[in-house]
Amino acid sequence: MSIAVDIRSAVKRYGTFTALHGVSLAIDDNEFFTLLGPSGCGKTTLLRMIAGFEGITDGEILLFGQTIAGLEPNHRPVNTVFQQYALFPHMTVQDNVAFGLKMKGLSAPERRARAGQMLEMVHLSAFADRLPSQLSGGQQQRVALARALAPAPKVLLLDEPLSALDLKLRQAMRVELKQLQEDTGITFIFVTHDQEEALTMSDRIAVMSAGRVQQVGTARDIYEAPVNRFVADFIGETNLLEVDVQSVSNGVAQVTLPGGHRLACSAATDALGRHHLSIRPERVSLVAGGDVQAVVQRVVYLGSDLQLVARLEGGQEVQIRLQNAARTEVPSPGSHVGLMIEAGAARLLAD
């Protein structure tokens, strides 16, 4: 598989502030790749550098093997969909979609045909003659997508395009975006701070923090095998427990939990001493006479799930997620319970 975007030791400085610290990423052709991280982590800066809206201080970015240094944004084979859709309010939907094609010199019949194809792809053919103000937020977002896809870019950059939509529409658009990427075969690079968006749509994810890439992998890699505390804590919910590490060999650690229970787990570090263990709440269950003893502190009803918070010996707390439908009895606060941690669920983290 060919590499669509090859980012090599990219650095971005603004005066004395360094926004990106030597970022290197290889993004495959026809991949849905997500840059995920909190505000200020550098993900949008990196996207803008690929687009040509920001210069690169040091390092190199290649598109399909060709350096893009010095290329103006309109000469790069990429297009961008922004958080604010920036549709032309005085133009019809069809004219908005065809605008970039006119700039490329296509004839009027060619523009109409291509715009019609794009509107059909995003299920808006019936709205071709409407103005953007006559559309819903989700429809405007699809027009922006159709406009960006019309010139057939090799790479589509998406800067938090779903953030202005309500929850149900965001969830529906995730499915549509992924389907659109698969149908067109275009490389999508998607920027978001929303972990659920990243997990549900991406072929691979780069988790970023403070201008550095913390981990790159599939959604399952990132969720099940985080490399450090930041990734484990940022992606979904997790329990971060301080444990004593007795030994590490061939990626397997022997640790002691609060209360003295010994446990074998996968390890992202070979350091001994006191470190953090990550255990996802849904991988802990209540078992009478379980190896780990705890006292229930809170029970929260979440519809399909129940969330329990239990305190271990020594004071550390554990969150537990239980399917609500199968439960006939719920322990009350103050109850003593036994906990079972699923085999392979715990992971020793690098700090």
Rank of each mutant, 00 (worst) to 15 (best):
F32Q: 03
M49L: 14
Q84A: 06
E31F: 06
L101G: 01
R48T: 04
A98G: 11
G55W: 09
F99C: 05
E72A: 15
G100C: 03
L101H: 12
V23Y: 06
N74K: 15
L87M: 07
D29E: 14
H90F: 01
L35N: 06
D58H: 08
G59W: 05
N79S: 13
P89D: 04
A51K: 14
L36N: 10
P73C: 15
D58V: 01
V97M: 02
R76W: 04
G42S: 12
R76D: 08
I50V: 04
P73Q: 03
F64M: 08
F53G: 05
V93I: 01
M49P: 08
N96D: 00
P73I: 07
G40E: 09
E54F: 04
G105H: 10
L101M: 11
A98L: 06
G65R: 03
P73E: 09
A69W: 12
H75L: 01
V97W: 02
P77D: 05
C41I: 00
Q83R: 12
V93K: 08
F82R: 04
L63M: 10
L87Y: 06
E54N: 08
G40W: 15
G59C: 02
P38I: 07
R48G: 00
N30R: 15
G65N: 13
L46C: 11
I50D: 00
Q66A: 15
M49R: 13
L62Y: 03
G55M: 13
N74P: 10
V81C: 08
K104I: 05
H75Y: 00
F33D: 00
L62T: 09
E72G: 15
E72W: 10
P89F: 00
V93A: 03
G100W: 00
A69E: 13
S39Q: 10
K102Y: 02
I61F: 01
Q83T: 14
I56M: 06
A98N: 03
A26N: 11
L35C: 12
D58P: 04
P73S: 13
L62H: 10
T45W: 04
Q83G: 07
F99E: 00
E60R: 10
G65W: 09
Q84I: 02
N96L: 03
A69S: 14
S39N: 11
G37R: 11
G37L: 07
S39T: 05
L47I: 02
M91Y: 00
N74Y: 08
E31A: 15
G70Y: 10
G65H: 09
T92H: 03
T34M: 07
V97Y: 02
Q84P: 00
Q83H: 12
F64N: 11
M103C: 05
T67W: 05
F33E: 05
L71Y: 09
V78P: 07
G105K: 05
A69H: 06
G40A: 12
D95N: 08
P38S: 10
H75R: 10
A69R: 13
V78T: 15
E54T: 09
L46H: 14
P73N: 09
T44Q: 05
L71C: 04
Q94D: 03
N30Y: 04
P77N: 04
T80L: 15
Q83W: 07
V93L: 08
